[in-house]
């Protein structure tokens, strides 16, 4: 008898138990799950559309006809795109190089030390490029560079690289500083205890342990430089068209599948670095 009732209630109990669990999952708020998934759809669908249609054979960027790498081929043929890519990579490399070195040195001087006079000021200055709206930085830098150019007569891509170095420093600084702060001070004491001189401690202990942070900083700087448009747009002189500037110019002229292809490539490059970065920092933990 008892067995019978048990077997009879079972199939009914399963779904209702599930429902009951849902109702008693106290963390849930109605509609919040849907909103979160909607958020992801909202963030990713335009990008997905862009990527998908970059592989469309048709000239239309709306109607799908056939898969093709045609627009990538054309993009590679395009001299403007090629030049812009070279400029972008040059600027990003130089800016990353200097920004990472400067940020590493600064991080060594601002972390793990007794509070000292001017520390807050130093910290504020390093983060200054993050606090000022980009458009303001862009026009002020333009104003300064115009004065310097007029006074010295020196022109060139160095100005653009310099402008990028400035705003790359705080981005490179963040992960390096975080890494240093997480670093166990006793590691260095252990090194000194085992007869390593201060230089040997830095070379054999501090620097190797800091390296993941330095890599992360360099990658962030590179991505940020590669993606910059506003400052480059105002500061870049003739013949210094970076890839984003080139793309903006093309968009203003009209939408072509070629832009989709270049955009996808640039997107892919940034994603590659960021995912790599995520993976490295995750692995290290």
């Amino acid at each position: 008898m008892a067995d019978l009732t048990a077997s009879r209630t079972k199939p009914v109990a399963a779904p209702s138990a599930r429902k009951a669990r849902r109702m008693t999952d106290l963390r849930r708020q109605p509609g919040f799950n849907a909103m979160a998934w909607g958020c992801i759809v909202f963030l990713y669908s335009p990008i997905v559309v862009l990527i998908v249609f970059s592989f469309n054979d048709n000239r239309s960027v709306v109607r799908w006809t056939e898969f093709s790498l045609r627009w990538y081929g054309e993009a590679f043929q395009n001299k403007g795109i090629r030049n812009a890519t070279v400029i972008s990579l040059q600027v990003a490399s130089v800016a990353t190089f200097f920004a990472t070195i400067f940020a590493t040195l600064a991080a060594l001087a601002t972390t793990r030390v007794r509070a000292y006079k001017g520390q807050t000021l130093a910290y504020a200055i390093i983060n200054q490029p993050l606090m000022v709206p980009e458009i303001v930085t862009a026009v002020s830098t333009l104003a300064l560079f115009t004065i310097i150019k007029k006074a010295t007569g020196v022109n060139g891509i160095g100005y653009l690289m310099l402008a990028h170095t400035v705003f790359c420093i705080p981005f490179a600084y963040m992960p390096i500083r975080a890494r240093l702060e997480d670093m166990d001070l006793t590691m260095e004491q252990a090194g000194a205890d085992l007869y390593a001189t201060p230089y040997q401690v830095f070379r054999r202990i501090t620097l190797p342990l800091l390296m993941p942070g330095v890599f992360a900083g360099a990658m962030l700087a590179f991505v940020v430089s590669l993606d910059d448009i506003i400052i480059s747009l105002l500061v870049a002189g003739p013949g210094e068209t970076t890839l984003p500037i080139f793309i903006l110019g093309q968009i203003r002229r009209g939408i072509t599948p070629e832009i989709n292809a270049v955009s996808t490539l640039l997107l892919g490059l940034s994603l590659f670095f960021v995912i790599l970065l995520f993976w490295i920092t995750r692995k290290r933990k």
Partner: peptide, 25 residues
Amino acid sequence: RRRWLLLAPALLTIGLFGLFPLVIT
């Protein structure tokens, strides 16, 4: 001295080409 030497490149770069332009503006 060591501290400010380490900070100098970053602070000078940002000071001269990040902060100073605001004064010009």
